[in-house]
Structures are given as structure tokens and as C-alpha cells.
Computed example of a mutant assay.
Amino acid sequence: MRVLIVGAGIAGLTLSALLRQKGMVPQIVERADDFHASGYMLALFPMGNRVLHGLGAYDAFRAASEPMDTYTMCNGHGEPMQTFDIAGALGKYGDTRQLSRADLLQLLRNAAPDVPLRMATRVTALVDHGAEVEALAEGESLGRFDLVVGADGIHSTVRQHVAGEIAMRPTGWGGWVWWAPAAAAPRTKVTEYWGAGRFVGVYPVRDRVGVIAAGPIDEIGHARIGGRGARLAELFADYRGVAREPFAAMPASDRDMFFWALEDCRAPHWSKGRVVLMGDSACAFLPTAGVGASMAMESAAVLADELGRSDARGVALALQHYETRRRRRAEGAQTASRRIASMMFISSIPVAWGRDHLMKFYSIEEFGKEIERSLSEPI
């Protein structure tokens, strides 16, 4: 089966390695010039790293990551509201660990290094020829394929072919992300600060710490920061505790950080003819639940499973089964991330005070129920 994967992110590289394991040799195209700007930190829950077991890449994953043993939720004054024992709650299913996106991409690429990968290539059009799909990049034909997989992220061009223009669902918030030295936060411990109109998250990975400082876009975006990292630090001057140290290591210019508009989207359907969506192109996640990478890897595993029991003539049925198995699960996790965002992203001081009071009674069972449900259900 001739398969083109558009996008060499987590979903695309996972699928390429799984298909290679089944004897297929897909082709991958990626619009970025290289992997140098390949993102920051992420968490991988057991439902994601189970896929790495299947690829024989689990030991490499452990070597590249840090365990996420505890998660502490603080208010904007730095006072702990809850500390959750992640390792204890989810350990029966496997490890929950954190690593940089670049490290995860590298180990996924290492799982299938012979799969052809062409960088700096943007697919601009797909032409349906019935039994084949032709992919065009700036007018150049990349060939004809039995299947094209759109794994090209939240701003997917392949999604336009499948479902037309899809409006983003904004939260009105955005966040600046940067790396701080490993000494800026305790290892294995995630700490988040939920303030009124401000949020700080501190996430240790191997050899460094990922940091995000978030707030309403009109207060924290490019127009307000004006190219000065110091201005961002001023907006969070009242934050204390673990949140304070990463600001001392913040780059002087916002050009050396990444601004993340906190929004998501949901495609109304995932396939059209011989073109299918996967990962953020199908169902994009806010970072609030931390499950986006795990969901993308699960989707790749399911699509590879369906394709492994099909040939070129049966692609339509394989895609139908893939969407049936994945869509409800992915959209359920996305809804959970939206619900958490509604609690995190609060600008009103009185409402934030009420939220903080309620969070003191939030149990580990409540915190982990969506993740535990995902882990207990087969894919």
C-alpha cells in the first residue's frame, strides 16, 4: 500500500514506525525546514507509552525522560491547594513521565530510520483520482498514493481537503514557553500556579525545566510584551515559590521564547475518500489535561492496526473502522481538557478565590478519573 504521511510530528512519526513494523514503507513530508524548533515539554501517560513498548522503544523513552511522581496545584500566591500522587494513582497502568518533544520525535524517528522523510515540503493540494490521491507541493507532484494521512497539526492543510475550513475554538488566553536550568525546580515534581488572570506551570524534564506563563492574550501577547522578556517577568512579579526561579532564567527577548495561543479545534469528520486525519489535525488538544501526545500515539496505533488488516482496495472500510474506534475517545479527552481550562483560565479575582477554595476538596480520584477511564478501556 502506498501511503503518504503529511507531518513529521508525534502522530506522523508514530504511524510511520508502526507501518514499517508491518512491512510497509510510507513516505513522510514535513513543512518545517528541520527539527531544531521542535517544541518544548510534554507528558506521556501510560496509554501513550504503551505504544512505545510495541515499537521496542520503551527503554529509550525511560532514558530520555523524567518520572512525573507528583503534581501540586497552587493558588496565585504560591500556597499549595492540592498535591496529587500521580505515580500511586496511575502506577498500576505504567509510568507517567515527562520529556521534551524533540527527544520524543527523535526516538520515534529512530524506530524507523529508513522511512523516506522529506523536509521543507508543504502539501498545498490533494487531487482525488478515485483509486488514487495525488499530492501536490507548490505545484510539484509528490506522486499518487493509495492513502494520504494528514498529521500536520492544528493548522492542518490536509484538513481543508477533508472538512473545509474549521474555526478555531479560542480560550482567549495564551502562554509564553521557555526552558530553564534543571536546578530551577525539583525533579519528578510538576507544580502549577492558578491565579486570577495568570497561570504558571513548571515541568521538569531530563536536564532542564519547561515553563509556561499564561494569561489573557490582550494582556500577555506580543502587542503587550513588545519584544521584552523582562516585561513578561514584571507581569508575574508577585509569584513566589517554585514559580519564581524560572523567571530568573527567562530569555531577555520574546524572540527566544514560544508564544502558544491556547485554542483547539475539532473536525466534523476525519476522512474523505482516501484521505484521513490523525492527531491534532483531527482533534486538537489544549495542554491543560496533558494527554494530547498520548492520544495522538493511540490514534496512530489504531490506524496502523486497521491498515495492517487491509489492502489498497479496503482503505475506505479501514478508515471507517479507525474513526469509529477513535473519535469518541479522542473527543471525550478533548472535552475533559476544555473543562479543566475553564477552571484554570479565570480572570475574576472573586471567581478565582471560589475556585481555589473548591480545589482544596478536589480528590485524586476526581483528578484522574478521565485518564483512568482512558487507561481502563481498550482501544
Rank of each mutant, 00 (worst) to 15 (best):
R266S: 14
F61L: 15
N49S: 03
V211K: 10
E140L: 14
A293T: 06
T121H: 10
T324D: 15
P287D: 07
R2I: 01
F345N: 09
P181I: 01
L19D: 03
A131W: 02
R329W: 01
H36A: 15
L99S: 10
L232A: 12
R373N: 09
I166N: 04
R313I: 02
R206D: 01
E234A: 12
R329F: 06
R31I: 08
E377M: 13
W179F: 06
G174M: 09
A330K: 03
G139N: 11
R266M: 07
R240F: 00
A182I: 04
I371T: 13
G164F: 09
P268T: 07
A237P: 09
I346K: 03
R97P: 13
G279M: 06
V242G: 10
G368W: 03
P251C: 04
A112K: 09
E263D: 09
P26N: 05
G76V: 09
V148Y: 11
T83Q: 14
W179H: 13
V351N: 05
P113N: 11
M1P: 12
N110G: 14
I217C: 09
G229A: 04
F84A: 01
D218L: 09
G227S: 04
A180H: 01
T121Q: 07
V123L: 10
H129Y: 02
V302P: 04
L307Y: 07
H269M: 07
G88K: 01
D69W: 00
G78T: 11
A341S: 12
I28Y: 07
G279E: 00
V302Y: 01
G226F: 00
D152P: 15
R198N: 11
G290L: 05
S38E: 09
L107P: 14
S342L: 03
A120C: 04
D254K: 01
M344A: 07
T191M: 02
A223F: 06
A125E: 08
Y193H: 15
E165C: 08
I166D: 00
S374E: 15
D128S: 12
E323V: 12
F259N: 11
L107T: 06
L262W: 10
G76T: 04
Q27W: 10
E140V: 14
W353D: 14
